[in-house]
């Protein structure tokens, strides 16, 4: 027998996942983005209890009042506390962003893997469908849908999600198409594995990393889309607060000129969140390549 090979002697095994995490941690902006997102999420969930103010409570004595005691960020046109609404709106915006991106990414993942793995007519049909969805202006279609069904949170999430899948679909399909020809996949097929197992155990884990990057962009897009729809009055129905409808209520020249506490906080919140999500996406993209082991 040949001499027994020595295995690297360092203690503990390093999984590709942990290596990716290591690379991610070296990406300073991404770490800052991740911390920001965690703070935003925790803030949106926990702070309302701390602040204690009801986001929908109307205080007729204090309408459009600037930041002052009792209302640190002032009050809006209905005399509601802006800070309370900002935090409540954060919940809604993050919920819409995350759920819609999750729906879009899941649909894109499944359809993309199926199209890429089976190719031929399956691929042809699904790719045409993706082209059709992409060629419609999403915002206008969603406006039409919402106009028919009526604005509600689930409608909003679903319609944003259903229109967002072609981008992740294309990424997954492209990767699967080339993966299918690679030795690592051929090898498993050669062992006798069926399509479901190959997709589940060998395609999905490989495409999931780059897909996460696309998903983060999807989150940012969905948050912006929600804001846009709410701004148009077609998003989250009042009185529920969202960053978008807070902006919506601030669209008059007087407010823009003289009452910045009404639009600056939700505006900054959207910008910071989208930026943080994008930084995380960047970091994930750089960390995602499992073969770049250094």
């Amino acid at each position: 027998m040949t001499t027994l090979d020595t295995v690297p002697a360092d203690a503990g095994s390093v999984s590709p996942g942990r290596l990716a995490l290591r690379r991610f941690r070296r990406h300073r902006l991404a770490v800052a983005g991740a911390i920001m997102l965690v703070l935003l999420t925790v803030g949106a969930i926990v702070l309302p209890f701390v602040v204690g103010a009801d986001p929908n409570a109307v205080d007729p004595s204090a309408i459009r009042r600037g930041p002052a005691d009792g209302h640190p960020l002032g009050t809006d046109s209905a005399g509601r506390d802006v800070l309370a609404r900002l935090l409540a709106g954060g919940r809604v915006s993050l919920l819409v962003g995350l759920s819609a991106a999750l729906i879009a990414t899941s649909i894109g993942l499944v359809l993309g893997a199926v199209a890429g793995y089976f190719g031929r007519s399956v691929d042809g049909a699904l790719s045409r469908l993706a082209d059709v969805v992409l060629s419609f202006p999403a915002l206008i279609i969603i406006i039409v849908v919402v106009a028919f069904v009526g604005p509600s949170l689930p409608t909003l999430i679903l319609s944003i999600g259903l229109f967002g899948w072609p981008t992740p679909y294309r990424i997954v399909r492209g990767m699967t198409l080339s993966l299918r020809e690679q030795d690592s996949i051929l090898a498993v097929g050669g062992l006798g594995a069926g399509a479901v197992r190959i997709i589940r155990k060998h395609v999905v884990p490989v495409v999931i990393a780059p897909l996460t990057v696309v998903a983060t962009l999807g989150v940012a897009q969905a948050i912006l889309l929600e804001a846009a729809l709410s701004f148009l009055g077609l998003g989250v129905p009042p009185p529920t607060a969202s960053w978008g409808n807070m902006l919506n209520e601030a669209q008059s020249l007087t407010i823009l000129e003289s009452m910045p506490w009404l639009w600056l906080p939700p505006g900054i919140a959207i910008a910071v969140t989208v930026m943080a999500v994008n930084f995380v996406g960047d970091g994930l993209r750089d960390a995602a390549d499992p073969r770049a082991v250094r």
Partner: peptide
């Protein structure tokens, strides 16, 4: 196929990295 197996040239490319 159980009785007929294949070994690839490049072991790194043919083993699942994860």
């Amino acid at each position: 196929r159980r009785e007929l197996q294949f070994v690839f040239q490049d072991p790194y490319a043919s083993l699942p990295a994860r």
